[in-house]
């Protein structure tokens, strides 16, 4: 593999692992504080799945990079500008409504995305995708059901879900914004162009928003800069400060 393709593959793998890590950490912030015990357990289990997937993605990223770093180094010893996650996943949880709607937007992307990655020419990518897809499908069932229950719930739950939708919507476009790394992955048969999934995602979202009696904004404006690492929100640094404090203070500390 030539160096340019290898660099793109590492960037691609970091995007996958950083997405699951950042969303996994945000979701874990609910542990012990969710609105109901069942939801607390569900959120903690969802976070656990996402962090498990992170070990697979970042583990492979570290191997391909080949400089001796491990998945743990990548998770706990990189700074905000090295992270390549979607901006949507790093913004604060705010309330349960925003948390579950974000999970739905992500799940509705991950399911067809991981499904396509199962056919990757890179068999490690295909294996991680097949493993993660089973978990993502389960997450999608729950997040879409819960979005519908809250949207089509009481006046209060509906208005909070609509506020969450208005807030998150401008962040969703970044999932489908192709760049040079996506072109390189697509050219090598490792991954499809994310933009090819946009229509299907819009269809799934429209179906669930209709059942949830929520109104999708017309705007096509999209915040960008997370996948490339060039412009994260101010929230990521604060999140990493909490997530990374132990490894920053005691590098290499282990159980």
């Amino acid at each position: 593999m030539d160096q340019t393709l290898k660099d793109h593959l590492v960037a691609f793998l970091l995007r996958q692992g950083d997405n699951t890590l950042v969303l996994g950490h945000r979701t874990s912030e609910w542990c012990g504080t969710a609105p109901a015990l069942e939801e607390d357990i569900a959120l903690a289990n969802t976070a656990l799945d996402l962090i498990g997937q992170t070990q697979l993605w970042l583990g492979y990223a570290a191997e391909v990079e080949g400089t001796g770093r491990t998945a743990n180094d990548l998770a706990f010893r990189r700074d905000a500008y090295d992270f390549k996650n979607l901006l949507m996943l790093e913004v604060p949880n705010e309330d349960f409504g925003r948390t579950i709607l974000r999970q739905f937007f992500f799940d509705a992307f991950q399911v067809p995305w991981l499904d396509a990655l199962q056919g990757s020419t890179d068999e490690r990518v295909a294996g991680i995708a097949a493993k993660s897809l089973k978990e993502a499908l389960y997450h999608l069932d729950r997040s879409s059901e819960t979005v519908i229950a809250l949207g089509d719930g009481t006046e209060v739950s509906n208005s909070r879900m609509q506020a969450a939708l208005d807030y998150l919507w401008p962040y969703t476009g970044e999932m489908f914004a192709d760049d040079a790394t996506d072109a390189a992955m697509s050219g090598a048969g490792i991954a499809p162009l994310p933009s090819t999934l946009h229509t299907g995602w819009r269809g799934k979202v429209a179906e669930v928003m209709t059942s949830a009696t929520l109104t999708t904004p017309d705007s096509t404006f999209s915040h960008k800069g997370g996948r490339t690492g060039t412009r994260h929100t101010e929230h990521l640094g604060h999140m990493l400060a909490t997530m990374q404090v132990l490894q920053r203070s005691h590098p290499g500390a282990a159980w």
């Binding site: 069942e38 939801e39 357990i41 569900a42 289990n45 969802t46 389960y138 069932d141 729950r142």
Partner: peptide, 12 residues
């Protein structure tokens, strides 16, 4: 009751 339970492999 819930799609998740006391371990990742169970629901309530």
């Amino acid at each position: 009751i819930s799609a998740f339970g006391s371990t990742p492999c169970k629901a309530q």
